[in-house]
Amino acid sequence: MEEKTFQRIKELTELQGTSGFEEDIRSYMRTAITPLVDDVQQDGLGGIFGLRHAAADKPRVMVAAHMDEVGFMLTEITPRGLFKVVPLGGWNPYVVSAQRFTLKTANGNYPCISSSVPPHLLRGTSGQVKVEDILFDAGFESKEEALAFGVLPGDTIVPQTETVKTANGKNIISKAWDNRYGCTVVLEALEALQKETLDYTLIAGANVQEEVGLRGAKPAVTKFDPDLFFAVDCSAADDLTTTNGTFGHLGEGTLLRIQDPGMILLPRLREYLLDTAATHHIPYQYFVSKGGTDAGAAHTANQGIPSTVIGVCGRYIHTHQTMFSIADFDAAREMVIQVLKGLDASTIKTIVAGK
């Protein structure tokens, strides 16, 4: 991996923005996308996309990451100055406690930690934890002091983590790889395609609010009306104890998602992806998921949009620390670039027609 790419990953993953509060990531994406496209447009919820225009009668292809990461929204300040929250996105309650966060307010950002109960005080109890039971602590001594610092219900709390490489140089540890992976790939693909002539209009960028119900994809595909939709997203690895009968193994290539609760990969689209991988010797692995992506929202939008995911897997997603493979990222990036290079109006027509 080139140092430029690692630095881009580090910058994007260390940025903080949970669902509905993606402004820092959107600003980064706007700055990076603008010199690579003909124009940049934003939908009503805040998704941002760069367009490379073809003739009006040419098909339209959309490549979409999502900007948001899982986090929390502050719902109540207790008399002692602690915070009750609701999760934004899916959290395992057992990974929330005793972690460092950033409390983002209109007055500025403040360090914050999540509470934990010492084992001494759990004796005689069930020991079970719910997110709603975990308090967040920014060190304020009262509700009045928190309010004086500008803290209000509706503020967000986001993980704080440094992005680093593992000792062997083969993996990276970060937060928010779901889905700053997609943001990184979109930028790298646009750079790689700068000198390519495309036989379609390319719409490439990132949606908002994916982690809270695939909300951002819906206005985006309505606005841009693509003929094909490619989500670029990170999924959960399942390889800690075995790779026999599980999906998502670090180091085995990009994910070819064939089914999840919201999407079935259409035959002609699968055929195109397999041909692309074989032609360019791109390692891939089949993937079946219990969770969905923006492709699930896109493919039933408008009059129906053939959609798929070009993904990577990561261990421990939706936590402070995700581990992912540099080789998998390289494979996914190459897959996105070659898929977009290989598409033309005739191929898109065949995929959409399904015959």
Rank of each mutant, 00 (worst) to 15 (best):
F230N: 01
I113W: 12
D43T: 14
I326D: 02
Q42S: 12
A54N: 14
G154F: 13
E132C: 09
I282P: 05
E271T: 07
S116A: 10
T125Y: 10
S289H: 13
L122D: 09
D275K: 14
A297S: 04
D294G: 05
F287K: 13
K175A: 09
V37K: 02
I326C: 01
T18E: 01
F101V: 01
D38H: 12
E3P: 14
E162R: 09
P118E: 06
T243S: 15
N107D: 12
I282F: 10
A192L: 13
H318L: 00
N179G: 04
F247N: 14
A189C: 03
I348G: 02
R268M: 01
A54M: 13
S97A: 10
G314P: 07
A277Y: 10
I310K: 11
P283W: 07
A189G: 00
A55I: 10
P261V: 00
A65P: 04
T319C: 10
P87I: 15
A98M: 11
D57F: 03
L135A: 09
T34V: 14
A220T: 04
E14D: 07
V61F: 05
K290Q: 15
T161A: 14
E252R: 15
G17T: 02
L198G: 02
L187A: 15
P219W: 05
G253A: 05
S289P: 10
V151N: 04
E162S: 12
F324I: 15
V352Y: 05
Y181L: 09
I337S: 00
A220L: 05
N171S: 11
Q128W: 14
I113M: 09
G124P: 00
F247A: 15
V61A: 12
L12Q: 14
Q194R: 10
A64I: 01
H281T: 11
A345S: 03
A148H: 04
H53Y: 09
G245H: 12
F229R: 03
K341Q: 03
D43R: 08
D155Q: 05
H53W: 07
T308A: 07
I326W: 07
I326N: 03
L274P: 02
P226T: 12
S346F: 08
V86Y: 10
G169A: 14
Q7R: 07
A146E: 04
G124H: 05
V61G: 08
S19N: 07
K341G: 01
S19C: 03
H53R: 12
V312W: 10
I348D: 00
I9L: 06
T105A: 03
T350P: 04
A146C: 10
I48Y: 06
A277K: 04
A353R: 02
V131T: 13
F83C: 02
G205K: 01
F329H: 00
